[in-house]
């Protein structure tokens, strides 16, 4: 077989291309759950922004995947990238973080409370109807971004 002067170069180019595509194969990360949709918004409790807390998205019905938690700071929350939900129906649960002086991992808190003879902690208490027995639902459309506003009330309903 006769080889043309450019033949070798062409072969090595094709080889390099093949090698590069083999190496790059599998680098494109695809999310097994689908396209993520960016969600942001505001949470207020009795009209005031919730200083610190969490928004929990619980997939409902055919919506795939595990729960997502989105931190809330000064009433604002934003879920992006792999922390964002995929399209579908969600139940929304909103919890308030414990006060700054009594974090959940403070092992001296009980001793401090006992020493100060303190029986109550001033904390924002969000009623169970917004978290463990939540009736809030939200839909994430296939295309984002989405903005949600949740206005919670700690008053008992009539």
């Amino acid at each position: 077989m006769r080889r043309y002067p450019g033949a070798l170069a062409l072969d090595s180019w094709a080889g390099a291309l093949l090698l590069a595509s083999t190496l790059l194969l599998g680098c494109g990360e695809t999310d097994p759950l689908g396209e993520r949709v960016e969600v942001e918004g505001v949470v207020t409790v009795d009209g005031a922004p919730l200083p610190r807390g969490s928004l929990i998205l619980v997939p409902l019905g055919d919506t795939p995947g595990p729960k997502l938690t989105v931190p809330i700071t000064d009433g604002n929350f934003r879920a992006t990238g792999r922390y964002a939900p995929v399209a579908g129906e969600y139940r929304v649960e909103i919890t308030a973080a414990p006060p700054e002086e009594f974090p959940m991992d403070d092992e001296e808190a009980f001793e401090r409370l006992r020493a100060a003879n303190q029986r109550r902690i001033a904390a924002i208490r969000i009623p169970p109807r917004y978290n463990t027995r939540s009736e809030l639902t939200a839909t994430v459309p296939p295309q984002g971004p989405v903005t949600w506003t949740f206005e919670l009330s700690t008053k008992t309903r009539r």
């Binding site: 969490s54 929990i56 595990p66 729960k67 997502l68 938690t69 989105v70 931190p71 992006t80 792999r82 922390y83 919890t95 973080a97 974090p103 959940m104």
Partner: peptide, 18 residues
């Protein structure tokens, strides 16, 4: 109750204490 197997990236500003 919260996210399952959360993955946290250092200093990306996204962290839920739960």
């Amino acid at each position: 109750q919260y996210a399952f197997n959360p993955k946290d990236r250092a200093d990306d500003g996204i962290f839920d204490s739960n």
